[in-house]
Design a protein around this nucleic acid. Structure first.
Lengths: 227, 227, 227, 227
DNA sequence: GATGAATGAGATTTCATTCAT
DNA sequence: AATGAATGAAATCTCATTCAT
């Protein structure tokens, strides 16, 4: 009960923070304002989230969770479809997620800038102490694994022919998605254009490319470049 | 003469800033520290660079130039090779650049988030006034155009068969590279039993995928997902 | 019964508060800590004592009572002795009290700073509402009156010859005691080579001085200073 | 030069703080307000004085210095007078000082509450770190010594006959003065009455008592109290 | 009455940026 | 152009006190 209440309050605060951060951006957002929107005082806000950065990590975490839920929904819906379709659907889901949740997308990209092996110094104390930051390592692993699982299924059902390690292919998928989401982040939204090209077209191409990669047994021979 | 001196001082400041930013990250970096490392005072630092953001723009500009130089070197070296090889070599170059120059890579990505459509309002005064920012606006498309040019050459010499707009394909290449550089960070952090793949392998796969995309006439039909 | 219980709880809280205040001083003491030492929660603490100041008043009141009891004991014991001896014994008692009960002594002094003329405005609401504060106002003159009474007796029995108002002499006695207790602290802190005198010696001198003042008919002519 | 400027700025801040503290009292005084009165910002205020407590210590220190100056003036003016007159003049000076400088008097009394041997815990970190607090130990020693010196002179010139250690007599003098100043502090000012008695009369009596103590060769035999 | 959570007011800190000399 | 000092805006913290249950 008590715990429930705390969690629900946390959630409402995060929601308020999302509103404020979305409107004015992380840097310009004031904790005072977040508190006010959440209908609490600054001190209470700090009682729940120990720092502005931690609050942002909480938002990021929520974004990750939402994405994870989406992943679960997709795999559930696709359980009777081929592993390939399931895998591509995950990529599709991710891209839609990035499109529909600008704040989360930004947060997620920020997260990926943060997690740098062996570069502790870049992490502020506040982030190091953020429980959400710690939790996120697990979730982001999980996401990798979930798509790896679908890839594995695809290999089993014959829809995926690439013989590379599923986790590796999963990682490669992320490569394309993250790149896409970054471009999206820079562009504003899917309907906008970049160099006169629609972002939505980029999404289609990413999916096609992913499909090609999975269907064909592409190996790791380096193309002859001689540069 | 005076101008030379000023430029050389600017350079040394930028170098100091790169050192500091690399170590602790942009956000945690203090102007005081930058000044100290550069062997000058804060006010002098401000005399040269009017804001922290402008200083970051200066770094970004340097990164830009370095990458651009690399691009020129590659196209020069590949001028007798096929357009495909040249294009892939550019991607290869970019990946190396991203891996080797974390700070520049981050800065470039940050820049592209800044410069895109509809973001005018989000630009701080400091950035709007940044001379480096202005300089970059003139040349930031160059990178895309350079690779688009090689793709075009590839189409001409028959090594590239994809009929999509070269600039678009060029952008698609970027997405993969960007994702590659971001994912690298995150995965490098992981439990090695899970993500035991080598960075170089991921790079190879990215190149293979790019090659597939360029060689085959992939269109923009969305794969049937039905989710 | 209920009332008894309440009182006993109040007492135990005051005892806890005395412990805490003694250790860290009134200002640094935290209500949280007092509650914790008393084995209750902060809110319960507030249910018994409505403010930190009121709690301090309660302690003061206890100190008052203790001193007053001491005074009664002394006058009782000295009822067959001269008024002079009785008066000096009161001063002696007071000095012992000050030395042995630092907290009470401070509290008493603080109280007298509070209660004096023209300070109405400076009294915080919390103090004005303090029931202990009110209680004390009824009895705080008692101490003076008690010693004034003994002085009066001394004048009657011929042991005291000073013709000044007994209450005034009583007050003068206080000034010496108060000073004694304050200076003790400061000098105890000093380099022992300089202030190598014993506390007990200072006390003796104070008593001697008081005796001199009482025995001789000292008036209020200002000594000629010409400065 | 630089140092001079800093000191002069410090002084002007202390003056501002005295103004504010006098008006509303230490507890109610806001650092923001002090800064504003000093014509600087809060941050600058903190650059000079690291805490509110330290600022108060600075005021206290100033009070001590002022008192010390007064002491020097008195001894200078009295150099051709007897040691007794000089000593009594010091006491007189101190009492006038207490009367004329309510804030300093309060601060000084507070200081004497603070300096307690072996009770480090009562000192807040801020006070422990206060350079003014440290400095004060020296000054308050000096004050003791200055009057001891005059007492010594008095013994030499025959105006003082008490054979007790001059430093000890000096301490005893302080005892009376501090007590007086505390009563003064409680009463408001010299013209006010306490128990229908004038504070100014108390001052006279204190001086008379001191004179008696110095002139007569009072020893330390304890009056027979038998309590 | 007891409890956990919240409030309000102000102290303190951090830094990018600016000013006066 | 260089320097030391100051500013402004917001983050963060501390604690007595109060509220809701």
């Amino acid at each position: 009960m008590k715990e429930d209440k705390r969690i629900s309050k946390e959630e409402s605060i995060i929601t308020a923070a999302e509103k404020v951060f979305s409107e004015v951006g992380y840097k310009n957002a004031k904790m005072e304002e977040v508190a006010s929107v959440a209908g609490i005082t600054k001190v209470t806000l700090y009682a729940y989230f120990q720092s502005k950065e931690n609050l942002y990590m909480a938002i990021t975490f929520r974004g990750f969770q939402k994405l994870l839920n989406g992943y679960y929904q997709v795999t559930e819906k696709c359980k009777n479809k081929s592993g390939l379709i399931s895998t591509l659907s995950l990529l599709d889901k991710f891209m839609d997620f990035s499109t529909d949740n600008f704040l989360y997308n930004e947060a997620l990209l920020n997260y990926f800038s943060l997690v740098r092996s062996g570069n502790e110094k870049k992490l502020s104390e506040a982030i190091k102490e953020s429980i959400y930051f710690k939790k996120m390592q697990d979730i982001h692993n999980l996401l990798f694994k979930l798509s790896a699982k679908e890839i594995l299924r695809g290999k089993a059902d014959g829809s995926i022919n690439n013989n590379l390690d599923p986790l590796f292919l999963s990682l490669h998928g992320w490569t394309m998605i993250i790149g896409y989401s970054k471009v999206l982040n820079a562009s504003g939204n899917q309907d906008s254009t970049i160099f006169h090209m629609k972002i939505s077209d980029l999404k289609k191409l990413v999916l096609q490319t992913a499909k090609l990669t999975l269907v064909n047994n592409i190996g790791l021979e380096e193309p002859i470049l001689n540069v």
